[in-house]
Design a protein around this nucleic acid. Structure first.
Lengths: 341, 341
DNA sequence: TTGAAAGCGCTACCAC
DNA sequence: GTGGTAGCGCTTTCAA
């Protein structure tokens, strides 16, 4: 069976207190005894129980990552970044895919508390404000990543979605496009709204007229919905010459719709995605897309979480990272016209 | 602060033993008292500590998932399946991306033991046999998923890789292809070897000659390596007319190489992938690929793990699932020739 | 039916 | 330097 601290103490002929001190590098133990104890630990393949340590007031070195779906490439990347930073610092991550389902969110939140995690990183967000409130009250560290929940007093790390949309809009308008459609996720997400707002701003600055009928939100199956909506647009006679998609999944849908209608990308239709997931490199042509710095986001989220330990922060911190336009091959100047500048 | 069982007992005017019984639905407590206690728990937002319970010999309801990389779509899907089945049964999952790096494997294995997980699902595999041995000896439940470690006495759930390769080979040969190249992962993986073996068998049965120079293994950056190797082949004068890729990432590389050379898919070159990840639907054309039933695999892995609890199994179980060829648009009959049958 | 009390493995404080 | 010991929150006999 598993060796305990008692086994080690007995084998080494010392008290468990001595062993504990050695484990934690505290107190004063003679070099000799210390080495002896280490040797015994090694021999018994002894691993100190984090469980037992946690019970005495220490941390569990564990936290939970609440996201919509780990099999969504964007969140998988966030997860990887969180995991890596956590691992560096000695923490383990519980993965919690919620499907944005209230019941699952509730259950996971409850489980994470029962398991005494040291904090929770939340990348899922719609109307979960109320569910988060109780855990916040227990002064459990929480940080939001890639999603915002306005009105909640929590540390947050996001990108500047407005700027991301603006980047996309500037790019497309700069290429001479006039009729540009927008495929967004749920309108409930502030990130979606911000991206559209930035996009619109850039278009209007370029003198384009804003056509609300060219903006559509999409449901659960992003690629399918995106495809359907794009098909609608492309079938009309005054079809858009470019589509801005608020994430890469939607862009894939748009790509499929275009191909189905025999439209060439980017000659006949330009498409811009968002997130720069691995999918953007798999499409043909490779997708021009707005990148989120997932690595940095995950890292920051962990760091902010850990900073909260002990001292509850007075006012929450908000880290806003810059998005970046990644030019690939799904966008081009409007046929015949040279791009501006 | 967090409420404990003592708080509940005090509030309800009973002993902690009574509260404990209510929590676990054991013992005999009068209906009345029970409801009263439930009410207090609710009011205090009390969550029983899994940590403390675990210390008294109960389980932690937690297990670890060791995979190469959670941001690899295939493993993200496995993870999702494992998570879902676990969640159903009340378990939480630690995600552990190892990058197939010995040091990381070692550390994660150690951490998982310190955190007293109830079991470990291993989807990472190369030469980790020796590292697994000690944890097996401590009678920690372990099951392998999607990877095999021959010689290890462990439950395993895999697909029939040989059959998967055979499926791909039969498909391509049936389409009339004669010169078919193979892009594989590391030759150390038995899954790679098996896929190739099955593929070869199918080709030979179709009367094709096997050309070892048309088989290449690839390193860490699968899409880049795949692209490079494919480029090599496609540049030659006796270029292959089809490529079988042992996973979708490699297929993307091949797709890129083909496009770079101006080859049309599938008219000039047929490509078959493996895994049927979301990537296969994002490519253009969509990728014909051999699907692994990730949902079922994850589920089975969890179930086998849980079956191991308590009674150590005499002889390990091996679940072999059937792969399935998913026909999409990246394959076609050799130019001019009608497909056989 | 209910409660008192003995641990589970470990930490931390206090004596020696 | 070193060891004894009181908990941490909970489960589980065993008596009452």
């Amino acid at each position: 069976m598993k060796a305990t601290i008692y086994d080690v103490a007995r084998e080494a002929g010392v008290s468990i207190a001595a062993v504990s001190q050695v484990i934690n590098g505290k107190g004063k133990i003679s070099e000799e005894r210390r080495n002896e104890i280490f040797a015994v630990m090694e021999r018994l393949d002894y691993k100190p129980s984090v469980i037992a340590a946690a019970l005495t007031g220490k941390k569990t070195y564990t936290f939970g990552l609440l996201i919509p779906d780990i099999s969504n490439p964007f969140f998988a990347e966030i997860a990887r970044a969180v995991e890596d930073r956590g691992h560096q610092l000695g923490y383990s991550i519980f993965i919690c895919s919620t499907d944005n389902n209230d019941e699952r969110v509730e259950r996971y939140l409850s489980v994470l508390q029962q398991k005494s995690v040291d904090g929770i990183i939340v990348g899922t967000g719609m109307d979960h404000r109320d569910m988060l409130q109780p855990v916040l009250r227990k002064s459990m560290p929480v940080v939001l990543v890639a999603r915002e929940l306005p009105g909640l007093n929590v540390d947050t790390v996001v990108i500047d979605d407005y700027a991301g949309g603006y980047l996309a809009g500037g790019h497309l308008a700069g290429l001479g496009h006039k009729r540009i459609a927008v495929l967004a996720e749920s309108a409930k997400l502030v990130s979606s709204r911000e991206r559209i707002r930035g996009f619109r701003e850039a278009c209007e600055e370029a003198g384009l007229e804003w056509d609300e009928s060219l903006v559509r939100t999409n449901g659960a199956d992003l690629v399918k919905d995106g495809r359907r909506n794009a098909t609608d647009w492309l079938a009309g006679d005054n079809r858009p010459t470019a589509i801005f998609c608020c994430n890469d999944l939607l862009a894939i849908g748009a790509l499929q719709a275009a191909k189905e209608r025999g439209l060439r990308i980017p000659a006949d239709l330009s498409i811009v995605g968002f997130d720069n997931t691995i999918l953007a490199t798999a499409t043909d042509p490779p997708l021009t897309t707005v990148a989120q710095p997932t690595g940095r986001m995950g890292e920051l989220a962990v760091d902010l979480l850990l900073e909260q330990e002990g001292s509850r922060r007075e006012s929450p911190r908000r880290a806003v990272l810059a998005p970046e336009l990644v030019l690939r091959e799904s966008t081009a100047a409007l046929r015949g016209k040279a791009p501006i500048k």
